[in-house]
Design a binder for these strands. Structure first.
Lengths: 206, 206
DNA sequence: ACCTGAACACCGTTCAAGT
DNA sequence: ACCTGAACACCGTTCAAGT
């Protein structure tokens, strides 16, 4: 077969197939992607520049599924809280995407817009230049880390044996808790917001 | 050549070569590792079970280089602060190892000991079961995320263009700051400790 | 016990050839 | 413009063969 009358591949189909493969196995490869779409491996390069672009398109797909909505008059804490929830939530529905995004430069416009929203909220709150950057870096670390926690449940905990009593007790409690990762995230989110508010109040001598 | 009188490979040499390759290129492969040691690819499997074990040995090497020292009577905040600094610092000297550790189960005894120390400090402070687990998960997220920030400087920031004014300003300030990642880490560390202390005080009605 | 070379089943990307 | 098949330069792991 050569060029068909109507294209066999759409970018949408590529992204869907990639996401399916990641959800199922934690990874995807061009050969498997091609097989799933029912097309040859090399033909994918007619629609997409390569593996990296496919991953960035997957990122976009994740964010499409969970838009950020906050009231126009919401305080900076609420904007932050919701933005972080959206960011982490977009990974939560497809946890195994998180590790693959780790070293990938963010280019997706919706992701950039989310960061811009956070930066804007911090500026409006009165945080200054470098502190805005630091706060975003911290938020980013936290959200990504929490997403990774979903993808690798018990990565650390698994190793806790008799020689680690305190760690062992923590594991046990967490297991009883059911959804450890979710609880850890909400716990961490409040800690983070509290910490930022405290610093904010100090800086403004409230 | 067959079996030599004195072994051509030591585990130490494997770890050293792997770490060198990671520092130089951000990754390592068995073929390159073998070439660097001056040995055949397959012979490495006589000393090590495979790629995963090599990575875990690298983790151990990193922690050996930065032991945790805290005064015996140190408060839980100080233990936490120092443990997090050690964890993150062990990656800071070899930033490009961080992404490779992301999805790897922690088995190195020194790493486990570090987690145990943190769990013990949180317990002693009066945090309860599930909260200890949540706090550790958060600390873990934060430390790993900060380490990743070192490996991928400007991963997000790069994309900030005219359409993202607040993000742009944050980037600019951070650039002027010089070592953005270090500043972000110390900023985040204080936020985190403050947040935990606040929750701790509330729980204990201080 | 420790090394070698060959083999196996995978990768991502390129490119000439087809229509 | 869009697809194919072959080719290239890589992977990690296994295994029979050597001493």
């Amino acid at each position: 077969m050569a060029r068909p009358l109507t294209p066999l591949i759409s970018i949408d189909a590529v992204v869907t197939a990639a996401l399916e493969l990641i959800d199922e196995s934690g990874d995807f490869s061009l050969p498997k992607l091609a097989k799933r779409i029912g097309v040859s491996q090399s033909s994918i390069y007619n629609h997409v520049s390569g593996r990296e672009e496919i991953l960035e398109l997957v990122r976009g797909r994740l964010l499409e599924e969970s838009p950020l909505v906050v009231a126009a008059d919401a305080g900076w804490e609420d904007v932050l809280r919701e933005a972080i929830r959206v960011y982490r939530g977009s990974f939560a529905r497809h946890p195994r995407t998180a590790p693959l995004m780790v070293m990938q430069t963010v280019r997706d416009p919706q992701a950039i817009a989310l960061y811009e929203r956070i930066a804007g909220a911090l500026e409006a709150a009165g945080f200054e230049g470098a502190d805005v950057a630091s706060a975003i870096a911290m938020i980013d670390s936290f959200a990504l880390g929490s997403a990774l926690d979903l993808a690798a449940p018990g990565s650390v905990w698994e190793a806790a044996q008799g020689s680690s009593p305190a760690l062992g007790r923590a594991v046990e409690s967490a297991a009883r808790l059911g959804s450890r990762a979710d609880a850890a995230f909400e716990f961490g989110l409040e800690i983070l917001i509290d910490g930022l508010r405290l610093r904010h109040e100090r800086a403004n001598h409230i």
